[in-house]
Design a binder for these strands. Structure first.
Lengths: 250, 250
DNA sequence: CTATTATTAAAACGAACGTTTGATTCAGCC
DNA sequence: GGCTGAATCAAACGTTCGTTTTAATAATAG
């Protein structure tokens, strides 16, 4: 055969197919034979190139997360340099963290929605090696952004900020994963694969535009009244009120 | 041979152990042999009492969700009756929906935090039978609460409300699941089993007190500026071509 | 050309999986 | 006592899993 794929191609094809299959069926629900047959490579190719199924999953993530987390740190660095030591605004921090993520969904070469969905699902996977992998991979970024939020919201107890960072990660993961109860309401499924990538990119944009205000609203919500150290509930709300859905209550 | 309880006990013991193991290792990561050996029952007992592993998981959920969703409907009915036709406040609706859920975490006989964590994880599971099960089990409750939110926020586009309901479910699931990146920050793990039930109940209370303001803040956040130019919903997408083999690179 | 190295192919490995079988036990009833 | 039907048991079922092994193939170097 004239094709020369000595140094590549197979590897990338395995990663691409694995990414899609892990997204659609989960790690345990995806077999090596599904991956290798769909990628048109031999069964042994995965073990040859990656060593094991677990390592394959990690590599699927690493090739995307390396860019993502570097970019997140770079954007945060830029913001902090521009601010010249002043605390950043919460909206800037969220935009840097979640906006950077959403850019992946808009760019197929960065993984697209397929990778975003895989990420959303895998973040809650109970398997130990997965949690350990993410812990290592995310440690620096989370620490940096956590500190940035502490500085941005000096009057909010740190524990509260950590909780809300937690909630925001959850809202994002779940929203991204896509296959869930919500479709009971809206009535349309997601389609496991080949989901017409034509407007997947705009789908990411729409999701981002809707998720960001929600996260910001949650992050800056009034604190629970009984806060243990009883910090007065300084409420930094309504700085950027455009059109607020009103409630008939205080 | 001490007690002989022909009609029970084994069944309940299987359900209790299965609940805990599914929580700790996921559905695919939990084997029948793990369950039956830990419950001190014969391997065949699960298939005898429940028919299959999948049916076992469904039954684990059904015995808790029946109470939960009945209670959710009852509370909503009460609120709407008290309101005498007036729209409810968003905070009331969220309290009814998520507060009822949190009561499970505070009451061991309703499942406790073990069940909450299992629920949080399973809601994002890609397996088809799981999604179908939850769809059926949640359909009525979600429909009722969705309508209540529509009435409570008449000036917010319905699509936006559905999105935010989505985000809220995600924040809740993720927060509950517990085993995730956040522990990179806080530094303490969750412990797979027998996780010191001493203050699990107060843990549920703390979680609830912190989650609720966040959700309310997100729900009532300012809307994204473009309110109706793009419609992510209402796309029928009727053609669900499943399991299409991978595309050849052009 | 041969020797070498990298990659794929085909087959088989043992282990673990969910499930089924067939015998056995035991309470309750005619 | 003998029968019935629910419940439990040990053992094995056939399948699929991730991985390894062995051999063949293609490209490169000397």
């Amino acid at each position: 055969m004239p094709e020369n794929k000595l140094n590549s191609d197979t590897r990338e094809r395995i990663l691409d197919v694995a990414e899609r299959q892990f997204m659609a069926h989960g790690f345990e629900g995806t077999s090596m034979r599904m991956i290798t047959s769909m990628a048109d490579v031999n069964l042994a190719a995965v073990n040859y190139h990656f060593g094991s199924k677990e390592s394959l999953l990690c590599e699927v993530f690493r090739r995307r997360l390396t860019w993502l987390n570097h970019e997140r740190l770079r954007v945060l660095d830029d913001l902090e340099q521009q601010a010249k030591g002043a605390p950043l605004k919460p909206s800037q921090i969220l935009e840097a963290f979640f906006g950077t993520l959403m850019r992946i969904g808009e760019d197929e070469s960065l993984g697209g929605m397929t990778f975003l969905r895989l990420l959303g699902r895998t973040l809650t996977d109970p398997a130990e090696f997965i949690r350990a992998f993410f812990a290592k991979e995310y440690a620096e970024v989370l620490e940096r952004y956590k500190l940035a939020l502490f500085r941005a919201l000096p009057d909010v107890p740190k524990a509260e900020i950590v909780w809300r960072l937690h909630f925001m990660l959850g809202a994002m993961s779940y929203a991204i994963a896509g296959t869930d109860i919500l479709h009971v309401i809206t009535g349309h499924g997601i389609g496991d694969m080949s989901g017409k990538e034509e407007d997947e990119q705009s789908e990411a944009k729409k999701l981002s535009a809707r998720l960001m205000p929600f996260l910001l609203g949650g992050l800056r919500a009034p604190l629970p009244q009984f806060s243990d150290s009883t910090r007065p509930q300084q409420v930094p709300l309504a700085k950027t009120a455009r059109n607020q859905p009103q409630e008939k209550k205080p």
